[in-house]
Amino acid sequence: MKVRVVYRGQVKELHFEGERVRVMDVLKVMGLSKEYAFVVRGEEILEEREFLRDGEELRVVNAISGGRGYF
């Protein structure tokens, strides 16, 4: 199955083997941790163990940011 992911203003398409794909799998393939990132469907923040729907569009928010020059 595949999902479309909006990430930092860009759209990515992610492909997975099989149909039982969870939110945490998305974070995993993107190299992100639930410690600093989360996945959103519409207005709803998804839990890590929730299953995704084939072809849906999600937003991934990565809270980590670097180099703000210790602003």
Binding site: G9, S33, E35, N62, G67
Partner: peptide
């Protein structure tokens, strides 16, 4: 949400990832 284009590879990100682990 976008990062500053000059912040790529800032060392603070590495430390943040270690701490988050």
């Amino acid at each position: 949400e976008e990062e500053c284009p000059f912040a790529e590879g800032a060392s603070s990100i590495g430390y943040k990832k270690v701490l988050s682990q």
